[in-house]
Design a binder for these strands. Structure first.
Lengths: 304, 304
DNA sequence: TAAAAATACTCCATAGGTATTTTAT
DNA sequence: ATAAAATACCTATGGAGTATTTTTA
């Protein structure tokens, strides 16, 4: 079997065109070097050098192979160097999974600082439902996920709470509740609330709010995205609750709907950062956590 | 030191995501495999896999490094394969040195068959003077040279005579000797012959002809290429002798000059194939020799 | 004769094997 | 209890060293 040692010896001789000098260069004895080179020639079935006592010359094949050997040795050095470089925190590739109702509204807040502080980090982003996020994290498709209400008891996971994201009431224009500055849950009594089709923390939070307030899920309409939810409210189908980061980014400027906050404590969903307990780079993920927290807009208050 | 074995073991685990299966794949025991992988992790200072008893997952760095490791292993296989392939005769690179007064007129004769029979041969051609050819052959810049009157006594060289190339007389239009069908050297008595500036067998042959015939080198003009020699004859500066392959290719069709052959035996220069005695591939060079000889035009007669 | 590579030989590092333990579900 | 990887320990291959021989200019 060919070893890197063979290639290293071969390359040294090809460079120095002299066995003794080559041996010195790589700090082995000349006989050891000779042995490696002849062994390589034996294995390849090819004469690599013309040897005369005066000079050592690579054969035509030897020249070609020397180039290839050097390329291989360089690749190995590169690999080592890459591994070395990867030890600097938050560099290399990080595959982050995130909820579709969270990613587009949270990420813009911290990505600028992330790029500034960790320019060597390549963030691969994919949006998935909560179920998929957990499954793909477990399967090794994600390194890290951002989700709502992560299962705190799973022994395989490390779950770090980030914050609670408040919900805001979103009403059609001219709705009677629009007159109030802030709402209590009970104000929603009797309302029909449009909720999301699939659960990602929002549906659950809104439903529990309904339960507390004596309001009901709209029997005919469900939405599959926050944008469509807002559109449906705008067309007067009913009211809904939307998460603060979304409201901040998209809904506040929409003049077709009215946005009202809840009186403290508002309904909210929890947002967590989750990784496999066995994952290396936990310390890096903590840095990631800190970076997100530093960049939260004032609309968010801390986890509790 | 990282070895290919390390990379092979690492790649196998990255592929199988299972130590025992990976060990089977590369025919070693599972503990040996584990040892190699942890040793590699130790050396790189990086965790390559997350190990749980249920599953083995590459870390982000591990994924990147696995790709690199695979690339390296592929390169090594390629190298071996290349060496294997190079054992077919006359394939790969062959650096051929040739005289400027010979190459352009001889090569077209055998290159077609060469390409046909040895399509994998890459012929690197460079034209140099005889001195340079010998020096660069000795220095390993050429694998093989085609020259005239190679030094037969040099112990470092293998010299194989190819053929003798006859010289033809080339005269200005209307020259008195143009009336004769073939010339004897003595016919040139009193003529002024234009000769080449540098020696590559031609100058010497022509000068010895002069000596025998009682003619003289032209005192005012010398040429540095066969084409300029012919031009100078065409402008009436004097007569000259040109080698058969050149005459065949270029001078015969020139209506500005008259070409006349010499009676047997004509003046001629010897053409030899030369390589370093220590060179591998001697048998290939013999094949090269045979191929040239098979493709000589009738104008040439064999070496003797 | 001298300079360089190849050979002879000895030694030891380590890759690899078998048996066993550890670990986590 | 089980499945998988890690650990312990032993063996033997072969890489590397020193001393010497061979080769050829």
């Amino acid at each position: 079997m060919i070893t890197l040692r063979h290639l290293q010896c071969f390359a040294a001789v090809a460079e120095n065109l002299h066995f003794r000098k080559a041996a010195e260069q790589i700090n082995i004895s000349q006989p050891a070097l000779s042995a490696q080179v002849s062994q390589l020639e034996e294995m390849l079935g090819v004469l690599l050098f013309e040897r005369t006592r005066r000079r050592v010359l690579p054969t035509p094949i030897g020249r070609e192979l020397a180039e290839r050997a050097n390329a291989i040795l360089r690749s190995v050095s590169d690999l080592e160097e890459f591994a070395q470089g990867s030890r600097t925190p938050l560099s290399g590739i990080l595959r982050l999974g995130v909820l579709p109702t969270l990613g587009p509204y949270l990420l813009p807040h911290f990505l600028p600082e992330m790029r500034r502080r960790y320019p060597d980090l390549k963030l691969y982003l994919r949006e998935e439902s909560a179920d998929r996020l957990l499954a793909d994290l477990a399967a090794g498709q994600f390194d890290l996920i951002l989700m709502s209400s992560a299962p705190a008891t799973d022994q395989h996971l490390t779950v770090v709470p980030l914050f609670r994201e408040p919900l805001w009431a979103v009403l059609p224009l001219g709705h009677s509740l629009a007159a109030k500055d802030s709402l209590a849950p009970a104000d929603l009594a009797g309302e029909l609330l449009i909720v999301l089709e699939v659960g990602d923390g929002l549906r659950e939070a809104v439903l529990s709010l309904c339960h507390a307030a004596g309001s009901r899920e709209h029997p005919d309409f469900r939405a599959t995205s926050l944008d469509s939810l807002r559109q449906m409210v705008a067309t007067g189908l009913g009211a809904t609750c939307l998460p603060a980061l979304y409201v901040d980014a998209e809904a506040r400027a929409d003049e077709q709907v009215v946005v009202r906050r809840f009186a403290d404590p508002p309904p909210s969903r929890s947002i967590d950062l989750v990784w496999r307990r066995t994952s290396a780079r936990s310390t890096e993920y903590r840095l990631f956590h800190d970076l997100i927290m530093r960049n939260l807009p004032p609309i968010i208050f801390d986890a509790g």
